[in-house]
């Protein structure tokens, strides 16, 4: 009896604490949605500056996610399959962008692409200025978000039994064919989850992007700009619109995760 009473009190405390936590997440979002009128939202949707910023955020993030995937997937595979001296250091390097303040990450990326850098000088010879370009935005987005892809893909590759790769080798498959036809398809749900996470994290990046390119404006920078220049009421509809898009991406991510579990 005593045990049962104690259990009930703990359950109530846990339910209360969980409720507060959920409210903490949901309340600001609900407040934002309720204080934005539907006509205002439609007006914002027609605003070319807003739509082009959304297009830029989504497009650049998607492009750099795909580009990063070409390099990130082999690295994730090596991290899953190979044991080597200094592996812990390499893993630490991969995780660095997650722990860096994003403004500091932006400064680091700026140093990498500025006119004084080797890459910047090379671009200058070709007649390009990387700072303030969609390229700079993409590099900043990729820098802060690529660890999500590498780590998710690494977990996916780790879950593929090495036996299956050995079986394919013994049946005549080259190492690349094994990667393409056995490892990658079996790790696909994790890889897709990683790609979606990287894409979502990249498109919502503000701190690093604002340092390398205030213009052209991505949506997070536009929200900041409108808030700074005109106030909360002017920034709010843009924020709501972008949150809706982020939530749609998040739902897609959850659906893919569920599909992965079923598989």
């Amino acid at each position: 009896m005593h045990y049962g009473k104690n259990y009930t009190s703990i359950r109530l405390i846990f339910l209360f604490l969980s409720g507060v936590m959920l409210l903490f997440i949901v309340a600001p979002l609900l407040g934002l949605f309720f204080s934005t009128s539907v006509p205002g939202l439609f007006e914002t949707f027609k605003d070319r500056e807003v739509t082009s910023s959304i297009g830029l955020s989504l497009g650049v993030s998607a492009l750099f996610t795909i580009l990063a995937g070409v390099f990130a997937l082999p690295l994730a595979y090596i991290m899953a399959r190979k044991e080597f001296r200094g592996k812990a250091i390499v893993q630490g390097l991969i995780d660095i962008p997650i722990v860096l303040p994003h403004s500091a990450a932006g400064i680091a990326v700026l140093g990498f692409i500025s006119r004084d850098s080797a890459l910047g000088k090379f671009a200058d010879i070709l007649g390009f200025n990387l700072v303030g370009s969609p390229f700079a935005i993409g590099v900043a987005m990729a820098f802060v978000s690529v660890p999500f892809l590498i780590n998710a893909a690494r977990d996916g590759f780790q879950a593929v039994p090495e036996r299956l790769e050995q079986a394919a080798r013994s049946l005549g498959a080259s190492p690349f064919r094994v990667f393409r036809q056995i490892s990658l398809p079996l790790a696909k749900p994790s890889v897709i989850t990683g790609l979606v996470m990287m894409f979502a994290r990249g498109m919502s990046e503000f701190g690093a992007v604002v340092i390398v390119a205030y213009h052209p404006m991505t949506t997070p920078v536009l929200i900041f700009d409108r808030f700074n220049s005109y106030g909360l009421d002017y920034a709010r509809p843009v924020a709501v619109l972008f949150i809706i898009i982020c939530i749609l991406v998040f739902i897609a991510l959850r659906l893919l995760g569920r599909k992965r579990k079923e598989t």
Partner: peptide, 20 residues
Amino acid sequence: TPPQHRPVGLLFQDYALFPH
């Protein structure tokens, strides 16, 4: 010789069938 070029067939203990 790399495994893919050896005239050898290997039947694994757990059969290692490709699940996909």
